[in-house]
């Protein structure tokens, strides 16, 4: 609907420009602006044209996604998708994957589930909410060591992390990124030392802020968290996959409950999420494609 309004406005603008150009008998500026403006609706048509059924797809899709995906979806993916499918309304609900799993089990009418870990996806497959064949392990998040751009830390990698005067990590008892940090540091044999000196954040934002302010010399978060504050934190090192028992994989799947009338819209959105176009958006938010 909004897209239609926009088109009408753009169209009206072009007509106005064109008539203006006609009146002023070839005013240089108007003439150069005109083709630029006409390009926009033309491009939209082109994008929609190759997929024959595309203009016909309509409906409502609700995606339940991990909180770390919110910016990517709300900022870029939804508008991009709606440019191709203007008649599909996409709504998003974002929370921790565990909470979303509980909500879906409790009757949340989501059409797509995008989890930040395999565990919650597996639970919903077992619970009969998702068809195992529908699950795609799409994204990879990395565990990174960060510091402030202003810091003069001697730490260069996870191996010599104990040279930092202060370390911030997520509390492994409650923060998934903290559990991964513990895994990595345990493998490297420095967890005992870190545990007794590290400040345990109760969420990732707290860890980011401690590092950004220099209260903590270094911290451990997800690559996507670090990418959300590019001016305030810089990545020192990426944890190698060998130091972790399981990689941080984000699986996505359509739910079994999707209704007949929204099926085409849901399929289209899932296809879009898996497209190279969407992947480049995910990558700009710090994710990596998962090639397992």
């Amino acid at each position: 609907m909004k897209r239609n309004h926009l088109l009408i406005i753009v169209f009206a603008f072009i007509i106005a420009l064109a008539s203006f150009a006609g009146c002023s008998s070839g005013g240089g500026e108007a003439a150069t602006e005109e083709p630029a403006a006409t390009e926009e609706p033309a491009a939209t048509e082109e994008q929609a044209a190759p997929e024959e059924e595309a203009p016909a797809v309509s409906g409502a899709v609700m995606i339940a996604a991990a909180a770390s995906l919110e910016n990517a979806f709300e900022g870029d993916l939804k508008p991009l998708f709606n440019a191709q499918y203007p008649d599909v309304t996409v709504t998003g609900t974002y929370d921790s994957s565990g909470k979303l799993q509980e909500q879906i089990e409790g009757g949340l009418e989501a059409d797509i589930f995008f989890s930040a870990a395999l565990k919650q996806m597996d639970a919903l497959v077992e619970g009969g909410f998702i068809d195992a064949a529908a699950v795609t392990d799409l994204l990879l998040n990395e565990v990174v060591l960060i510091t402030s751009p202003q810091s003069e830390t001697k730490v260069t990698s996870f191996d010599n992390i104990t040279e930092a005067k202060s370390i911030a990590i997520g509390d492994p008892a409650s923060v998934p990124a903290g559990q991964y940090a513990q895994e990595v540091l345990t493998t490297l044999g420095v967890w005992d030392k870190v545990e007794s000196t590290a400040s345990m954040g109760t969420n990732v934002t707290e860890v980011l802020n401690w590092v950004a302010e220099g209260s903590a010399e270094v911290g451990i978060v997800y690559a996507t968290d670090a990418a959300s504050m590019p001016d305030d934190v810089k990545v020192l090192a990426i944890a190698s996959p060998e130091t972790m028992q399981t990689p941080v994989v984000y699986p996505v799947a359509e739910l079994i409950r999707v209704t007949e009338e929204n099926k085409a819209a849901t399929d289209a959105f899932v296809e879009f999420i898996k497209s190279p176009e969407a992947m480049s958006v995910f990558e700009s938010y710090g994710f990596k494609p998962y090639e397992g």
């Binding site: 202060s166 911030a168 509390d171 545990e195 007794s196 590290a198 707290e206 903590a216």
Partner: peptide, 11 residues
């Protein structure tokens, strides 16, 4: 929590 952090045994 903001200025002292959450270091078990220290803050």
């Amino acid at each position: 929590a903001l200025i002292a952090g959450n270091i078990p045994g220290v803050t």
